[in-house]
Nucleic acid binder design. Structure first.
Lengths: 250, 250
DNA sequence: TAGATTGTTAATCGATTAACAATC
DNA sequence: TAGATTGTTAATCGATTAACAATC
């Protein structure tokens, strides 16, 4: 185990003058950084040069203590009595998230959902570029979607060889997802975003995130059910329960 | 504060014989129940009558201790030495999630993503029915999508009056999302699934869940960046880091 | 200097996990 | 009964939060 961090209390900056050692961030913090980044971009476009933790926290929908704690993990980029420099903080967060380099995305499955994802503006505008579309259905291969020609899934190794895919997105039916994941892994992809409603099994060095739209609805359904059962109770409380806004992926 | 729960150690079943008091589940548990449910349906279709915590946990991608802990919050539906009755457990989880009643969903914004969501099979197959589509664009109003006619957003109150909407889905651009949320709330909707990349402000009794596709990619990007920086380090560790599969919304 | 706001501390809270007594 | 597996306990871990000293 090289690179053991010794008891330096300052977050990073060990190797004086060099690029700081890559910070080891809590998972919950990582999941919130993109939200801060979005808020900062909005504030920047609104003309703000500087923002307090209170102001940024409000824009990102968290409390200011949490925001300061999160940012403290990145190092110290604020000025006491003043706040954070918007441009500098954007730069820092983008660096940590690895957004200073454009990341190539391969999307597998151009059915209903995959088709929409292929054309989703939010990807391109935030540093990602879908560079290849794949499908197993011969009827779909060759089709042109949002400027890209759909290729057969068997061509994945060839495509991956010429263009390094940073992220693979799986938008196939559940039954096909594991096989696709295996092929992505074989092609060297180490990050997967899975929209298929199933658990994927992958090697330990591969990161998988899952988005399951029906699960989100079911979680909301639980809260609906709970709220209904509370108001139906004899002497039931009025709806004062914590209606919280939960970001997915925290 | 009526309905204060006194120190009864058994999870529920206070009011003997009656419907059990609605269980107060940890948020992390709630987010996993739909995953267990999906795994149970798969197992049931595979012919299993009974499943051990070890088996169900594997199918759901969690460890068995967590699974048993989660299920213990629902009450005691397993049999020691045997396992869980698949059908009974499905019934219990569906009851808790409120899936024994079909929930009507209203979808606002039938652009690229909204269009795909309107046709998403996974909703109907898991107890949800999209009953109305809305858009602000007059060019889209009247269009027929997957069997539903798109109505103008101004008709939302009228539609909500005749058909109780349990959940509102926002698939508009970020700039329109807050106004749509306000209208949903005014129409009596208390659960919102937000696909727009922005923070919504809603009353305390309204639950909001957010799905931000770009944020998921950015989280993966962080891990890509981290993995790259580790292997680039002098004497860098090989990729043994925890490549974990994180469910969104936990 | 006085006022403002960060970065850090320490307390608290909730979630995870391993171990095992209860019990089928 | 012996073997299997649940439900619960208690220890541990990570995340949240309020408060405040540091400092611009």
């Amino acid at each position: 185990m090289s690179q053991q961090r010794h008891g330096s209390t300052s977050g990073n900056g060990d190797r004086a003058g060099a690029v700081p050692a890559f910070p080891d961030l809590p998972e919950a913090t990582i999941a919130r950084l993109p939200e801060y980044l979005r808020a900062l971009h909005n504030l920047g476009e609104g003309g703000a040069d500087t923002i307090s933790s209170e102001g940024l926290a409000a824009a990102a929908g968290v409390n200011s203590a949490k925001l300061r704690k999160d940012l403290s993990h990145l190092g110290s980029y604020g000025t006491r009595g003043v706040g954070y420099d918007v441009a500098l903080l954007i730069e820092q967060i983008e660096y940590v998230l690895g957004l200073d380099q454009r990341r190539a995305v391969g999307l597998v499955g151009v059915g209903n959902l995959g088709h929409a994802l292929a054309g989703y503006d939010g990807f391109a505008s935030r540093g990602f570029k879908i560079v290849a579309l794949f499908d197993a259905d011969p009827a779909k291969v060759g089709e042109r979607i949002h400027g890209l020609v759909v290729r057969h899934i068997d061509e994945l190794p060839a495509v991956a060889a010429e263009e390094t895919l940073a992220i693979g997105v799986i938008a196939t039916p559940a039954g096909a997802a594991q096989a696709v994941a295996d092929e992505l892994v074989a092609a060297g992809v180490t990050s997967i975003l899975n929209f298929a409603p199933c658990v994927l099994s992958v090697p330990a060095n591969v990161d998988v995130r899952k988005v399951d739209l029906a699960i989100e609805l079911q979680i909301l359904s639980f809260h609906e059910h709970r709220k209904a059962s509370l108001t139906a109770l004899p002497g039931g409380r009025s709806a004062t329960g914590a209606g919280n806004q939960e970001a997915v992926g925290s």
